[in-house]
Design a protein around this nucleic acid. Structure first.
Length: 656
RNA sequence: GCACCCGUAGUUCAGUGGAUCAGAACGCUCGCCUCCGAAGCGAGAGGUCGCAGGUUCGAGUCCUGCCGGGUGCGCCA
């Protein structure tokens, strides 16, 4: 509702400014006044116009108000302060927009596809809290996009040929001194108590330690990596076995959080299907890549590094080799990671001229199918890639390589694609030294002085995703058990799970992307204050009112309601106004790739509702018209809050 | 050395194209369950928005410099 009114107002004001002053405003700032008593929207444009028109702001504001005329949905406009224009909406008309069942229904699906890539955990160990931030941000962003009508494919990129997987193979071969059948047995016997990815987590940490003991150990690593790349041997078979089993575990972990995928492209196929060869041809043809004949990169194919300018050429300093260039093909003819990534991204935009094979990989309980890349796939399969826009949810440390890929795509002349390539960048999750020690890790004296310590699979340093979830469910279960001893066990379990997921997802979303989350176990386990359960609880309270009254929260919205109360109590109107802002918030989240706004909004709306709940005792209200209005208010907030939580992948429990 | 991010209450963090912006949660102190569930509500204490300049009618927000913290910068993946 809020968004529509804002657009309506913006359009009318622009048209008026164009008519009256012959000025085209490329943007119009629409603020909110400090309190609703002054109106719902505030326009500071007079201040900007003051210079151009050489008139005092207040005078301009008066002219605009006088000449603007009637705007549908608005009651009146006033000049305030030194030149603000405050707009008051027709409250009853706005409220009716909110009562319509279509208030938040998505726009019709657009034909163009958008690709969101997230999670992308190396398939050699269990997922940890850092990965959770990635997956939750990515999944929430997908939900936001889909709610606004976008057709989104979700990809989880699998780097299954790197050293990380090789390291676990090395561990099995040289530390455990075991073979492929040992791995097969482990995978087969993987249980909730002894999950295979946990085994890998520990072994990976041991191997990393072991490498530091001797140079010979590092040689075995190189040999194993080479074997895996070659293929057709025991090490390669073991690597594939391990990676596939760990991927399956990751899918299971994420499934607990209601996170699903459509397609898992693997690096092994990018290599074996020779994606690079096609990209290489394109890049040579367009001159993005050139062969360096001198300097430190002699014998390599290189490209200009993103964000750099060519060195100045003067008579004294003749043009030399660009020592800062990014090497794409090494002098031994092997391609670097960025090179492979360029090829992969050309595929994403449908610019490579080649496709993966597709094979079924995993079926969710709800019937949704995950596909995985294959050299030769199933005959019947959906098609991925060839999208208009992409969002890569990758932490901020990958900014440089990401920019190099964008630079290459731009260099190839795909300007539009380069513009629609979004690195959805976020900061990492780190442990405070305090937290790390509480968790029982040995923290060196040097690390103790740091403000935070990076979570590291290599060091085995970090909180595993499944462990954290288990702790959260356990804590929630204790609360539920004590509050609802009469409920059946399975129902208590389900409720506790919903609360735990709500707490975890909200925790990862409430920080803005650019903030390093200094992980605090106590905060993460909290169900009070600015948390998911706080918002869930507001919904439960609303639900209880309707249960007690024997009414349906949805049905009550369709009847006749006296909306004059909106004009009597500004605090009641404020709740309605806030409830009407969801579509505005969604749009803002998408435009800025910042889901934290949705989290903040949900909390504020819940806070306002709890306040409302405390001030008005609805069921004992004697004035029937007023009682009905208060019930409708509760129903509206409940519906919007549920929609908002759903966008964040947080369920609304029936009781808690 | 270069590039990017961060610096706001005791703590963890919001503050979205400048104004009406000194905010929330946690923690602390004090109140509120005979009343739709207290995972809640209310009140209080607590901050020269890292420092110094600049732009402006106006700067937590923009620009420059400095200080402090973090990350990245290989023919590694």
């Amino acid at each position: 509702m809020y968004l529509e009114l804002e657009q309506q107002l913006s359009r009318h004001v622009r048209e008026f400014i164009k008519r009256q002053y012959e000025l085209d405003l490329d943007r119009l700032v629409v603020d909110q006044p400090p309190n609703v008593g002054l109106g719902e929207f505030a326009l500071p444009l007079s201040f900007e116009l003051a210079k151009k028109l050489r008139k005092p702001p207040r005078k301009i504001a008066e002219e605009i108000v006088a000449g603007l005329g009637a705007v549908p949905g608005f009651e009146k406009f006033e000049v305030a302060g030194a030149g603000y224009i405050n707009a008051r909406v027709d409250r009853a008309a706005a409220a009716r927009m909110l009562l319509k069942p279509s208030a938040m229904k998505a726009a019709p699906a657009k034909a163009e596809k958008i690709l969101v890539e997230h999670t992308s955990i190396n398939p050699n160990k269990a997922a940890h809290i850092g990965h959770l931030r990635n997956s939750i941000l990515g999944d929430t962003f997908v939900r936001l996009l889909r709610s606004s009508g976008a057709h989104v494919d979700i990809q989880n990129y699998i780097d299954n040929t790197g050293v990380q997987v090789a390291d676990v193979v090395v561990g099995v071969l040289y530390l455990e001194k075991k073979d492929k059948s040992f791995i097969e047995e482990l995978i087969m016997n993987s249980t909730a108590a002894q999950p295979f990815d946990y085994y890998c987590w520990d072994l990976y940490a041991r191997v990393s330690q072991w490498y530091e003991e001797s140079k010979d150990n590092l040689k075995l690593r190189l040999q194993t990596l080479h074997d895996i790349e070659q293929g057709g041997n025991e090490a390669a078979a073991m690597g594939k076995l391990i990676a596939t089993a760990v991927i399956r575990r990751h899918l299971e972990t994420m499934q607990r959080l209601d996170i699903q995928y459509d397609f898992l492209p693997q690096e092994s196929e990018i290599l074996h299907l020779h994606f690079w060869d096609l990209a290489f041809e394109q890049m040579k043809q367009k001159g993005v890549l050139y062969f360096e004949t001198e300097g430190k990169n002699k014998g390599c194919w290189v490209m200009k590094r993103a964000g750099t300018k060519p060195a100045e050429v003067t008579e004294e300093v003749p043009a030399g080799p660009d020592e800062d260039a990014k090497v794409i093909v090494r002098s031994n003819n092997t391609v670097t990671y960025v090179g492979k990534d360029i090829a992969y991204h050309l595929w994403k935009f449908g610019l490579l001229g080649k496709d993966f094979g597709y094979r079924k990989f995993y079926l969710y309980p709800d019937g949704h199918q995950v596909w995985i890349s294959a050299e030769s796939g199933d005959a019947d399969h959906p098609h991925f890639g060839g999208v208009r826009a992409i969002y890569n949810v990758i932490d901020s440390r990958q900014a440089d390589p990401q920019n190099n890929v964008i630079e290459a795509i731009r260099g190839l002349g795909y300007t539009e694609q380069a513009e629609n390539y979004h690195h959805f960048s976020y900061e990492m999750v780190a442990l405070t030294p305090r937290c790390a020690m509480d968790l029982g890790y040995n923290v060196s004296e040097e690390d103790q002085k740091r403000s935070y310590i990076e979570v590291s699979g290599r060091k085995g340093f970090g909180v595993k995703a499944d462990d954290l979830l288990d702790s959260l469910i356990g804590a929630a279960q204790k609360e539920v058990d004590s509050r609802h001893p009469e409920m059946p066990e399975s129902e208590r379990r389900d409720t506790a799970t919903q609360i735990a997921i709500g707490a975890l997802r909200y925790f990862m979303l409430k920080f803005t992307k650019g903030t390093v989350i200094a992980f605090d176990l106590k905060d993460a386990l909290s169900f009070e204050g600015e948390t998911g359960p706080y918002a869930q609880y507001a919904i439960v309270r609303a639900t209880n009112i309707f249960r007690k009254a024997g009414l349906s929260a949805e049905e009550i919205l369709s009847g006749e309601t006296d909306l004059r109360f909106l004009n009597e109590d500004p605090e009641l109107w404020e709740i309605w106004l806030r409830a009407g802002q969801l579509s505005h918030i969604v749009r803002q989240c998408i435009a800025t790739t910042e889901p934290a706004y949705a989290a903040k909004y949900a909390f504020q709306l819940a806070q306002q509702f709890n306040n409302f709940y405390h001030r008005h005792h609805i069921l004992t209200e004697t004035d029937e018209a007023r009682k009905r209005f208060l019930l409708v208010t509760a129903a509206v907030v409940r519906r919007v809050l549920m929609q908002c939580l759903d966008l964040m992948g947080i369920a609304a429990p029936n009781v808690m």
